[in-house]
Design a protein around this nucleic acid. Sequence first.
RNA 1: GCGCGAGUGGUGAAAUUGGUAUACACGUAUGCCUUAGGAGCAUAUGCCUUUCGGCGUAGGAGUUCAAGUCUCCUCUCGCGCACCA
Length: 765
Amino acid sequence: MDRYKPLDIEKKWQKRWETEKPFRALDPTAKDFDPKKPKKFLAEMFPYPSGAGLHVGHVRNFTIVDVLTRFYAQQGFNVLRPFGYDTFGLPAENYAIKTGVSPKVATETNVKNFRTQLKRLGYYIDWDREINTSDPNYYRWTQWCFLELFKKGLAYQKESYQWWCPEDKTVLANEQVENGHCWRCGAEVEKKKMKQWFFKITAYADELLDEIDSLDWPEKIKTMQKNWIGRSEGAEIDFEVAGASTSITVFTTRPNTISGATFLVLAPEHPLIKSLVTENTREAVEAYCASALKKSEIERQENKEKTGVFTGSYAINPYTKEKIPVWVADYVLIGYGTGAIMAVPAGDDRDREFAEKFGLPVVDWEKDIPKKPLGTPKVTYRMRDWLISRQRYWGCPIPIAYDSDGDPHPIPEDQLPVRIPEVKDFKPDDSGRSALAKAEDWLKVKVFNEKTGKVEEMTRETDTLDGYACSSWYLWRYASPTEKSAAWDPEKIQYWEPLDIYVGADHAVAHLLYIRFWAKFFADEGKLPFREPVKKLLYNGYINAPDGKKMSKSKGNVIDPLDVIDQGYGADTLRTYEMFIGPYDLDAAWNPRSVGGVYRFLSRIYNLAFTKLENSSNNIITRNKVIKKVTSDLSRASFNTAVSTLMEYVNTLYKSGAEKDDIIVLAKLLKPFAPHLSSEILEKYNSDDSWPKLDESLLEEEIVQIIVQVNGKLRARLNVEADLLDDEAKILETALAEENVKKFVPNSPKRVIYVKKSKLLNLVA
RNA sequence: GCGCGAGUGGUGAAAUUGGUAUACACGUAUGCCUUAGGAGCAUAUGCCUUUCGGCGUAGGAGUUCAAGUCUCCUCUCGCGCACCA
């Protein structure tokens, strides 16, 4: 008997797909484009192609997209499922520093390896649309996006205290600091005062917040984004400094508690501190501010014990007209509100703690304050502008040059891309400038200076862009990946976008917020016909090692998906297993035995299709039920139950015998999960792969089972003709005639509940 | 601390709208088969009970003819944010 040999089958089909390219998406400009077909655009969050190649987590992520893509393709949608690589970033650069291999070469190798591995999984990918963020043809347009933002004042420079990673020697965005540590290398971050580039994401804070509710995204992600944006409504109130002409502006969400404000607190970085200190306090205040700045953020977080120092100045409470002291304390943050607060110790735990520690007055605030407007109404956000400059080599160069005054000028569009110069030494240093600064010839550039009206020699910006900038528009590039005259072709964008389904397991606030921001910006520029780039988001769980721990090289518990395939299980088993492992959005632990179970399932299908076919049975009702269940399961992304339905079906067919239509339906429904085996079967049976049509009229069986409960407990099952379902009296009579029912209902039932839809009869005895 | 989830057999889990709890798979047990394999096939498998039956979805209460599902309280675990005024 011929046995299921997945590797042979998979090789055959992968070769065919490589030459026939059946997964190409048809643009509206294509010859064989059919305008009647509805479109679906699906994508995974494109990966960073590491040297280690695919891991099982990638496979889960990509297979979810693949199952859905094939599901829609088989239903006749014009589907677009492209692929790309997020290749800029620290790992490639750090690898280069370690090995001396240039990031460009390392990236090329890794992409090639990834592509080869992806093809071995049989993914439905339009390979003609592959993109790569470190390709000059791509980052030329990332630079264009930057310049669009720059022209509108949404890319700007600001000197301020920034997160600095002493290990990677670069600044980081707020989103890239996790618990006071660098998200990449884990080093404790520091604060450093530097002039940096920002994107003004806060300009869209309200819209980013308000439109969250309309998104078909997981609630968890939506909540995280809401919290991240952190909108607070309140007021700014000016407090005059006693005996001086200055005033201190504070932000508060509870202006009505002003009568209880007994002191002010400024953040140690607050610019007014200098003018508030007195002869007596100067030394102590300066020492406090200096040590607060030097302290790592961790220390500032871990040590919640309140510290602070009196400036020596007083302010006037504009409501009570009382003189209140002005303090400096590091529990007030310079980056939020105005960097200064009015402390109401009777109403706020932190203020109370501070007041108690330093013996400041605690005064109850007047509860019935007349609602006369106090201060200026003001909305504040926790979200800060997005810091985008990085002092690193392997990134998209910021297309800016500086004149002799140090003012920035955009590199003209006809000079794009600003290519990354070749340098020998990629190593970053503490100068605060990237390795690009070492390319001396590259640094000089002739740019028109609008101030002088002349073309002048200027110096290039040496910072590169945060990788998240590169990934903020790639979904739009997929619509026209080779377009030379624009970042995207408006006609194709109009047809394909926005993305229908996006699948990933990371970037809940960063990437998924940035991409929304850019969509809104480019929509305002008239360059995009939508304001939200992703309709539906699926956020899949991680796959852990069999011991339940995170897979890691150092623990030696990594499962290599290519090994699983090459062991003889094949890609179809791997794909189907990862869909069967549990609900897609939960973390799961790898179970080698369970992989074997899925292999057995596919083997049984193979045997059924190639060696055991019978012609006798009539399974048409079962078949229709299976079509209905699998279709609805895939529609609600319940992949594990779709697989289990197919398993049940196979078990049934082993008992009842299978006819040709059973095998064809089975292969079609299985194809999203196991495309190679299904293709092999469908070829043998001369069938296309169109999604099976459901015949609703064939769903109802002639004999139905009615559940009989007494006081809510199962006492009998009645097998009756389907026609009888409408005849409650008859059903009751039949039920009462049952021995076991009689036993529990000796007299006539006090109450009868009959639920036709559930085929259930409950008698209250 | 605040916010959001989740808790079901030995294990991963199913139950979509309040209506048969534990589908499917792993594991385990028994049997069959033979190309003796990392096979394949069949049957059984929540707990207590000889049977009838009783109990059972973290624990406790409640609503309902009927609760894994709804409400309240408690416990445990996970995730996110974390001095945001």
